[in-house]
């Protein structure tokens, strides 16, 4: 095949396309190598490409834990941050799904006058800058005494996640035929029973997909946690922020925390790629 033919065809890449894909894979994966090296370094000065002294040889010479010893010690607060990230993530996911499900069902099935307005309103949090929402919500929470609290952070995380969850779940309900539910009703099941035994099992995969992404968004949000948490609730992103914002060299502890902060994303990527198609993946973002 000539290059010209390959450009059209569905198989076979042009050399440039091959290079392009390799380049992308490298930009994603190659920075991880120095990051891992940095996390195991002890003395690493300009212009050395590798540390002159490693963590493993220095760790027993000092009274305080360094590098990975520090990262995994209680002093780093890493486990507190992980626990907070998980607790906030799960609370946000459950609360978000609980309030999004009925709304999505109505939007998918019913026609009513203000529907267009509601749909438009649900899109706006995506395009109003986060910093505006963050500072505004902080103002409200300072007055309600919710600034610096878990509850405050969970509520704040609902702002970016609810519109997203509603859009995903609406499309789930739209693809769901009402026949089975109607039959169940005719056969005498009450609405709650119908939902529990008929509707829920059918939409479960959609709920899972939506829930995973809500969790992902919550575990990645920095600005809302930082503004509303007022430095009192530490999550993985805020822990990383305190480390990188000093503007210094990337020390071994920062490198270690960077690697650990990537873990939730990597795990969710491995889970979701298996059973979520690209279209559904994109649905939540594109509306």
């Amino acid at each position: 095949m000539t290059i010209r033919e390959r450009r059209f065809s569905r198989d076979g890449l042009t050399p440039f396309q091959r290079f392009y894909l390799i380049f992308f894979a490298l930009t994603v994966l190659s920075p991880l190598i120095p990051m891992i090296i940095a996390s195991f370094a002890f003395r690493w000065f300009w212009p050395d490409l590798l540390p002159s002294e490693w963590w493993a040889s220095a760790r027993h010479t000092l009274t305080q834990p360094i590098g990975w010893d520090y990262v995994f010690s209680p002093y780093s607060r890493l486990f507190t941050a992980i626990r907070n990230t998980l607790v906030i993530g799960f609370s946000v996911t459950l609360l978000c799904l609980a309030i999004s499900l009925p709304a999505a069902r109505v939007l998918a099935r019913e026609k009513f006058r203000a529907k267009g307005l509601v749909e438009f309103f649900l899109l706006t949090p995506l395009i109003v800058p986060e910093v505006a929402i963050g500072l505004g919500v902080l103002l409200i929470f300072i007055q309600l005494g919710l600034a610096g609290s878990f509850v405050g952070i969970v509520l704040a995380h609902l702002i970016p996640t609810v519109p997203y969850a509603i859009r995903v779940l609406t499309s789930v309900f739209q693809n769901l035929s009402t026949d089975y539910e109607e039959q169940a009703m005719v056969l005498g099941a009450n609405p709650l029973k119908t939902f529990w035994h008929i509707t829920l099992p059918m939409i479960f995969p959609g709920i899972m997909a939506g829930g995973l992404f809500v969790f992902l968004v919550s575990s990645n949000v920095f600005l809302l946690t930082f503004f509303v948490g007022r430095g009192q609730v530490e999550t993985l992103p805020t822990l990383l922020f305190t480390k990188v914002s000093s503007g210094g060299v990337l020390d071994p502890v920062t490198a270690g925390i960077t690697l650990i902060t990537m873990l939730p994303g990597i795990i969710l990527l491995l889970i979701t790629e298996r059973f979520i198609r690209e279209e559904v993946f994109a649905k939540g973002f594109s509306g």
Binding site: S9, R10, D11, F24, L29, F222, P237, L240, M262, L269
Partner: peptide, 29 residues
């Protein structure tokens, strides 16, 4: 380019999405 069939496409679809899944602060770091 992604529409094409190529070796390791499945793997590439994992790899290229990674930055999407992690906080901006990791990118900063």
């Amino acid at each position: 380019t992604l529409r094409k069939r190529f070796a390791l496409k499945r793997l590439f679809q994992y790899v290229y999405k990674l930055p999407l899944m992690i906080p901006y602060l990791v990118g900063v770091s």
